[in-house]
Amino acid sequence: MVSPPAVPTQPRFALLKPEDAAELLAFEVAERAWFERYVEARDPRFYCPQGAVKHIIECLSLHAQNRMLPLLIRCREGRLIGRANLKQIDQTRGTAQVGYRLARNACGRGIAQKALRHLLKEARCTYGLHLLSAYASVENPASQRVLEKAGFKARQKLPGHSLVAGQRLDCWAYQCKLG
Rank of each mutant, 00 (worst) to 15 (best):
V2D: 06
P8A: 09
T9W: 03
Q10R: 13
R12L: 14
F13V: 14
F13C: 06
L15M: 10
E19M: 01
V29Q: 12
F35T: 06
V39L: 11
A41Q: 12
A52H: 06
K54G: 01
H55Q: 10
H63V: 09
Q65I: 12
M68P: 04
L72V: 15
L72P: 15
C75P: 01
C75F: 00
R83F: 12
R83C: 09
R83K: 14
Q91E: 08
R93P: 01
G94C: 04
T95H: 09
V98K: 01
V98N: 02
G99L: 02
G99D: 02
G110Y: 13
I111D: 06
A112P: 13
Q113H: 01
K114P: 08
K114W: 09
H118L: 00
L119Y: 02
A123P: 04
R124K: 13
T126Y: 00
L129K: 06
H130F: 05
L131P: 08
L131G: 07
A134F: 09
A134W: 08
E139S: 10
E139Q: 08
A142M: 08
A142K: 15
R145Y: 11
V146N: 07
A150H: 02
A150K: 03
K153R: 13
G160L: 04
S162F: 04
A165T: 03
G166R: 06
R168F: 09
